[in-house]
Simulated scan of single mutants.
Amino acid sequence: MIRQIELGQTAAIQKRNIRSLIKGGKITLAGNRNLKIYGRLDCSSGKRMNPENRVFFKSEEEAKEQGYRPCGHCMREQYHEWKKRKQG
């Protein structure tokens, strides 16, 4: 897991470093550290979150290992599977 605020002191530097990590295949998903939710990088809900709360993952498995759940907006199918498992 990589925190956005660890990627540079300014928003411009963070953005450049995020692009580099995406191109290099080091991150494929983003998450909200406070809510413990992960989703696609292009999720409109994720784009609105505070940079201090944004984290990045290489894989869905990594996000799940960290205790995050799928986003109900951009990962609807995975979210419904998660919800069914949680309910028992």
Rank of each mutant, 00 (worst) to 15 (best):
R19Q: 15
L35P: 01
R76E: 12
N32R: 10
K47W: 05
G39P: 03
G31E: 07
A30G: 09
P51I: 08
C71D: 04
H80C: 02
E60I: 13
N17R: 06
K84E: 09
K36C: 08
P51A: 00
Q66N: 12
E52H: 03
M75Q: 07
R69C: 01
F57C: 08
S20A: 10
A63G: 08
R3M: 04
H73A: 02
G46F: 15
Q78R: 09
R33K: 15
G24R: 10
R54Y: 02
Y68C: 11
C43P: 13
G46C: 06
E52P: 00
N34R: 12
S20M: 12
A63D: 09
K84I: 10
K64L: 14
E62D: 10
A12V: 14
C43S: 13
Q78M: 07
Y38E: 06
R3L: 10
R85E: 03
R40D: 13
R85A: 11
Y79T: 08
K58C: 04
Q9S: 12
G46I: 06
E60R: 14
K15G: 03
I2N: 09
G46D: 01
F57M: 08
M75D: 14
N17C: 06
S59Y: 06
Y38M: 12
M49E: 11
I22C: 01
A30D: 07
M75H: 04
K36G: 12
G31C: 12
L41K: 04
S20G: 08
R85L: 05
N17W: 03
Q78Y: 07
R40Q: 02
K47G: 02
E61I: 09
T28N: 14
H73L: 13
C71P: 01
I22P: 00
R76Q: 08
N34F: 13
K15R: 15
R33G: 06
N50A: 02
C74R: 12
E77F: 13
K23Y: 12
A11T: 09
L7P: 06
Y68H: 11
P51M: 02
G46N: 09
L29P: 03
Y79D: 05
E61W: 01
Q14M: 13
L7T: 09
E62F: 05
K26D: 07
P70A: 11
W82F: 15
E81T: 15
K36A: 11
Q4K: 07
V55G: 01
L21I: 11
W82Q: 04
I27E: 02
K36P: 08
K47H: 06
L41E: 04
D42G: 05
G24W: 02
E65W: 01
I13R: 15
E62I: 05
L41V: 03
